[in-house]
Computed example of a mutant assay.
Amino acid sequence: MNDRPKMLIVEDNPDDLDLLKRAIRKSSVHVECEIATDGDAAVSALERAGAVEGRTPRVVLLDLKLPRRSGFEVLEWMRSDVAVRRVPVVILTSSDNSDDLARAYDLGANSYLVKPVSPAALSAMVEQIDAYWLRLNNVA
C-alpha cells in the first residue's frame, strides 16, 4: 500500500488541471492524487474511498463550477455522509464572488482559495496546501 497521503482533485477544466498537476510535480509535494472531472465522479470516488478503512483522502481540492453535480452539491453530500464528512475540503475556484464564498463556508468548506493566474503563484499555493493540510493538520 502507498504511504503517501491521498488528495482528491475535483476539476473539470483541462487547462486548470494541467497547471495544478504541473505545480504538484514541480513542488516538493509527495501526494497520491486522484482526479475527478465532474461532481458525480467525485462522489463515486469518495464513496469508494469511504468504504475502505484508511483510504479517504487527507484533503479534497474542490472546484465549484462542475458538470453533473456542482461543487456545492458535492460538499453538501460530503458533509452528510458519515464516512467522509470529516475530510477537509479546500475550495479551489476562479470565483471570488462573496455569495459563493459564504455558501461554501455555510456548507462546511474548510478553506476557500481563488485560483491564482500565474503558474508560480499556483506552485506557491500548492506548497502551502501541502504544508498545512497534508503535513501539519491532524485528521480525525
Rank of each mutant, 00 (worst) to 15 (best):
D3E: 09
A42S: 07
V31L: 09
M125F: 13
R48D: 07
S111C: 13
D16E: 11
M125V: 06
R4M: 12
A109I: 01
A109V: 01
R25W: 08
A102D: 14
N13Q: 02
V10H: 04
S123F: 05
M125Q: 10
G71N: 03
K26I: 07
K21C: 11
K115H: 03
D15F: 13
R69W: 06
T93A: 01
A131T: 14
G54L: 04
A83T: 07
R86H: 11
R135W: 13
L61A: 04
C33R: 08
L61N: 03
V74Y: 01
V52G: 01
L92K: 05
L113M: 12
L64M: 05
K6W: 13
D12M: 02
A51E: 12
L134N: 00
A49L: 07
A51Y: 02
D40L: 12
D15N: 08
R22E: 15
L66V: 04
A109Q: 01
Y112A: 08
V90P: 00
P116M: 03
L8M: 12
R55I: 02
A140K: 14
P116W: 07
A49D: 09
V87F: 08
A23Q: 00
S95M: 08
R86I: 07
L19Y: 06
V29Y: 02
V126I: 10
P88Y: 05
E127G: 12
M1S: 13
R22Q: 14
S95G: 02
L20E: 03
S95H: 03
I9K: 11
V90D: 01
D63S: 04
P5G: 06
D15V: 14
L101G: 05
E34V: 09
T56Y: 01
A121I: 00
